[in-house]
């Protein structure tokens, strides 16, 4: 063993590479079953996630669907679509709204989910725990269309529960037209999102908490740690890695619709002319000026922009996590 190591050291670098390649080949050989199992997934990912990327070409065209349309007989317009996207006078506010609401959602959903999970974790009566959990995650399963209607009914000036409550508590004198005032929109968004998502988000943390070694708690108890201390020094550090992975994933969705970041449905369903200055996000803008107007190129350009920002954010947060010595996603 040692001999061969020595030998390799004295040989030329080409040979080193050869041995490396051989090593790699060995690893591949060793894991060939795993490799084969991943082939269908790779094919799936290629077909659905990479192959459609050729559609990005559309962003540099003035794409018009028509009978003989292909990707290559369209008019090429260079960066015109991006120029239009960035120079629309309200692009600034669209971007502000997107990021603003995403950040609100990110922070609120993490804090509330972790707090709820911590509290549920402390409940020892299984029945009570399950009941609370079920009630809190029920709203997650109704679609945003219905949820938005519930929200708008609750906020109505016409016997809406929120206005009725605030008026009878003498907090306000007259019902407020919540949805018509742009300044309330982000707040409504944050609260509605928490209401809808918190129970479901907490499940993941509860799972992480369940996997913490009970010995740690016992040991801490013997050392005289109270509830708060145990939460602070055992539970929270125990879910840290889960937290970081989720954070990285959620940051990727800062500009997009998926992953509960909520950059589209809520704003689309509850956005009104009078609150548009604070409700229009990139996705809503793209729908209105891109897809609805048959301007697919603009929609593609906006999509590309979002993807690029998302990828850079993921790398950024990932890098941070690495620096802090935490688990990473990539």
């Amino acid at each position: 063993m040692q001999e061969s190591n020595l030998n390799t050291e004295v040989r030329s670098s080409m040979v080193v590479r050869k041995t490396n390649r051989k090593k790699m080949w060995d690893t591949i050989k060793n894991q060939k079953q795993l490799m084969f199992m991943s082939v269908p997934l790779l094919i799936y990912i290629f077909i659905f996630n990479y192959y459609p990327l050729y559609g990005w070409l559309m962003a540099f065209q003035n794409y018009r669907p028509r009978r003989d349309a292909t990707m290559f007989n369209q008019e090429w317009v260079g960066l015109d679509n991006f120029k239009f996207l960035f120079t629309q006078h309200d692009f600034g506010r669209v971007l502000r709204n997107t990021i603003g609401m995403s950040v609100i959602n990110l922070i609120l959903s993490f804090v509330t989910a972790i707090v709820l999970a911590l509290l549920l974790n402390e409940i020892k009566n299984l029945f009570v725990k399950k009941t609370i959990q079920t009630i809190s995650y029920l709203p997650y399963f109704i679609s945003w269309v219905i949820a938005a209607t519930i929200v708008s009914q609750a906020l109505s000036t016409d016997n809406g529960i929120i206005n009725n409550m605030l008026v009878s508590l003498r907090i306000i004198d007259e019902p407020i037209l919540w949805l018509a005032e742009g300044k309330y929109f982000w707040g409504i968004f944050g609260i509605a999102n928490v209401w809808k998502q918190v129970g479901f988000n907490a499940i993941i943390y509860l799972g992480a908490m369940a996997s913490i070694d009970p010995n740690l708690y016992e040991a801490a108890e013997i050392d005289g740690a109270g509830r708060m201390k145990k939460m602070l020094h055992i539970t929270l550090p125990g879910i840290k890695s889960t937290f970081v992975v989720l954070l990285i994933m959620n940051v990727a969705h800062l500009l997009s619709t998926g992953g509960g970041a909520g950059g589209f449905e809520f704003q689309y369903l509850l956005g009104r002319g009078s609150n548009i200055a604070w409700s229009e996000t990139i996705d809503v803008f793209t729908l209105r000026y891109g897809i609805r107007m048959g301007n697919f190129s603009l929609a593609t350009a906006a999509g590309m922009f979002k993807t690029l920002v998302s990828i850079s954010l993921v790398f950024l947060v990932n890098g941070l996590a690495k620096k802090l010595g935490e688990n990473r996603l990539i």
Binding site: L177, G273, S274
Partner: peptide, 12 residues
């Protein structure tokens, strides 16, 4: 004029 005019959607 109903203030709700400005927050209602078509179904409402």
């Amino acid at each position: 004029v109903d203030p709700e005019s400005f927050v209602m959607n078509y179904d409402q």
